[in-house]
Simulated assay, not measured.
Amino acid sequence: MNKQVLITLGLFITQFGMAQLPDTVKTDIPLTPSKSDTLKTDTPLITPSQKIPLPPFRDDDTTSKAEEEPFFDYKSKIPDIQSQIDSLKKIMRLYEKTREMPTIKEELLDLIKVPNRLHRITLHNGSIVLGEIIEERLDKIVLKTKIGLLVLDQESIMMIEEELPPVAVVAFIEEPQVEIFSGKEVITGSVINTGKKRGDFVRVIANLWTKTTELAAKDSAFINGIKMTYNTGVKTDTALEPDQTASFRVEVHLSDSLKVQYRTFDIRWEE
């Protein structure tokens, strides 16, 4: 009895709830999906609340193709470039070691072209000018100097003297001494530089003559001068500065059959 009453009450409540729903809800929801609804469900729509996964990150260990295969193989060229740099450094060190700046005393003056004919001009104010007179007028003269052309008024000039460029003048201090031995003669002596410039590679030449003016023998020797190192790297001890003296010794070998009647001596040097 009670069970039948409960069933009847449940059916009543169900019918009452269905009656309360709006008609639109009842009619808009189809019981079976149509063909158009099936197409719509095949292409899902993206709603704002839906999350889209990001593409996977590249590992740090992986490299791109451009990095794996560079256009220019610079790694193989670096040792060659370093070798060339080291070679250039060695050349520059050698160049700096051998290069020498000329000194003001001699070498720098030799680089300046000096006129062959010099004039020493003394002015009324006490000044002295050296140069070559290239033009002379009644009222002025034009002088070529080491620093360029110079124009002087005749009224300012007190005296004009010709002066030669400085040169080395090497001469014997006294007559050379001759020692006669079997098969040779030894000539000794001393020389002096009376000029105003250093003489380089000074040597004494001895000539032995017969009574018929025939050259019996000839030889030469360098003097025992000061030591010099030139810009070319040549080292020698045959130089002679102005007002300095040096000794020499020359050995001349000759045949015993030749009789020496007289001797002549020469001095040669370079500047």
Rank of each mutant, 00 (worst) to 15 (best):
residue 98 T to Q: 11
residue 192 I to E: 09
residue 165 P to I: 07
residue 139 D to M: 14
residue 197 K to D: 06
residue 93 R to F: 12
residue 205 I to L: 09
residue 123 L to V: 00
residue 230 Y to V: 03
residue 247 S to T: 13
residue 73 D to G: 09
residue 163 E to N: 04
residue 121 I to E: 05
residue 112 I to D: 00
residue 42 D to Q: 12
residue 17 G to K: 05
residue 114 V to H: 05
residue 208 L to G: 04
residue 114 V to A: 12
residue 215 L to T: 01
residue 160 I to G: 02
residue 261 Q to F: 13
residue 113 K to Q: 10
residue 240 L to E: 02
residue 97 K to F: 11
residue 195 G to P: 04
residue 48 P to K: 11
residue 250 V to A: 00
residue 138 L to F: 06
residue 34 S to P: 11
residue 35 K to I: 12
residue 15 Q to A: 15
residue 203 R to M: 08
residue 123 L to W: 06
residue 250 V to G: 00
residue 204 V to Y: 03
residue 88 L to G: 01
residue 44 P to H: 07
residue 259 K to W: 02
residue 18 M to H: 10
residue 214 E to L: 10
residue 49 S to N: 13
residue 203 R to A: 06
residue 171 A to Q: 15
residue 69 E to S: 14
residue 65 K to P: 02
residue 1 M to I: 06
residue 36 S to H: 05
residue 28 D to S: 11
residue 49 S to Y: 11
residue 27 T to M: 06
residue 52 I to V: 12
residue 42 D to E: 12
residue 27 T to Y: 05
residue 54 L to F: 11
residue 209 W to T: 04
residue 42 D to P: 04
residue 143 L to H: 00
residue 210 T to D: 11
residue 48 P to M: 03
residue 228 M to Q: 09
residue 154 Q to E: 04
residue 270 E to Y: 07
residue 74 Y to A: 01
residue 233 G to I: 01
residue 183 G to I: 01
residue 72 F to L: 09
residue 116 N to C: 01
residue 94 L to H: 10
residue 62 T to I: 13
residue 104 I to R: 13
residue 119 H to Y: 15
residue 221 A to W: 06
residue 21 L to I: 11
residue 149 L to T: 07
residue 135 E to N: 09
residue 97 K to T: 08
residue 240 L to D: 00
residue 203 R to G: 05
